[in-house]
Design a protein around this nucleic acid. Sequence first.
DNA 1: CGTTCAATTGAGAGCGATCAAGTTTAGTGG
DNA 2: CCACTAAACTTGATCGCTCTCAATTGAACG
Lengths: 254, 254
Amino acid sequence: LIGRAALKSDHRPRTDCAQCPLRKLSLFRPFSDEELSFVQRFKVAELKAKPGATILQEGQDSPHLYTLLAGWAFRFKALPDDRRQILDFALPGNLLGMQGAVFEKIEHSVEALTEVTLCAFDRARLWELFNHHPSLAFDVAWLASRGEHFVDGNLLAVGRQTAEERVGHLFLQLYDRLAALGAVEGKKFACPASQRHIADALGLSLVHTNKTIQRMRRKGLIRWSPDSVEIGDEGKLRAMTGRREDDRRMRPLL
Amino acid sequence: LIGRAALKSDHRPRTDCAQCPLRKLSLFRPFSDEELSFVQRFKVAELKAKPGATILQEGQDSPHLYTLLAGWAFRFKALPDDRRQILDFALPGNLLGMQGAVFEKIEHSVEALTEVTLCAFDRARLWELFNHHPSLAFDVAWLASRGEHFVDGNLLAVGRQTAEERVGHLFLQLYDRLAALGAVEGKKFACPASQRHIADALGLSLVHTNKTIQRMRRKGLIRWSPDSVEIGDEGKLRAMTGRREDDRRMRPLL
DNA sequence: CGTTCAATTGAGAGCGATCAAGTTTAGTGG
DNA sequence: CCACTAAACTTGATCGCTCTCAATTGAACG
């Protein structure tokens, strides 16, 4: 609820979906005029949230579904004590709150990691989308499946890989996803996640995460600075983690 | 491929969807005649597979999507060495292969844990489903979201809970899911998963899984026999794992 | 300049892994 | 009905990766 207050609705003339800067990337499949016009009407607000703001809260019933337009966020589940597990990071183009739209409650929270821009869609009209826009309905299913795909990979890493492998896996995953968005220069990308976030994503303690990063840095596998990550030896990292490059086929953007 | 060979297509008069014994459970939402007739046409075969058979294989491109009609299966990812992580267990009513239907490759395998009966749907006609049967399209999205929901819970357990908590979480999850299907008597249910499977699902070694189960047995939290599990102290288990009871709302069955 | 938060480093403890035998159970064939 | 076998389950002993505890440093901020 505190977090909710931090969500600011922006009632200035909203970005026209047809002019959406994200949509212009060749990564996203072109939408027909009809699709665009529906998405435009489906969109009820454009929001901004500050780092740390709660976008969706576990156990609550959100009336909205969001597309992350800009910035980073993360999905997580918390335990009664202070343990928490980050389920995955959300980057521009990702859909948030699907579980809430289809069940009535969501069982995870979503928090902004940087300042984020969100497109809010009216959950009540999701039905209309399925009824009259099958291509968009398919896109929703596509995005939901992709979400599961990420969590699958994270579960493998957390359950069966060593600390170094986990760090390598996460950094490669972010590298691949950001590269698709054109947000990598050389092999370097801005990474707003702190070591606490990384630890919570990998199921490691903060201290051990730090020591692991230091060790990998000394080995030349990666370079690290508090606000960016650089892949030092991509081949060795991929071999070590078993992570293949993401495919770069076009994808939908709601 | 070996596993694929073990999939036996059954060309005897197939179960009529309207007569599907699973669908008769009050757990599943009633389908209209029109929905039933489409599902019936969407269904291209009814298969049986023996324990250990590979239903879907990581990296392959399966032409089918399956609903598990009877038996248990599990989704997993394997590493180059012999490590593997079970992502979740599939029980009757679960949809398998959605990721393969929407991308072209699936990034996880699915193996039969018991003898299973599967309804095979033609992936190519998923498009027709989305185009002409919005209510079913919504059901597909519903099932996909529920799949992610399970993996989320498993990731929390594996990443941030102790061995005892993980075992408790898994047994409670199975208990809840099986209870919804009417497959629990008292607090006891048949569990075809071996300790190796449980270990692979929880990210633990086989030895430690065994020792943890023994300890929980001595504490009266659970009872264990090689082919069934009984919840000994549900309250204490739920408190310890933070796992609330599943909701029992009606759900779709494809 | 205190304060605070992220990163870093050292030391020691412990949970869970690995190694190594056993034991029970189920299935098979004599 | 009884060896024989293989798979699953148990249990003990030891190792080590990762955790926790404890400080220190550095950067950002009011």
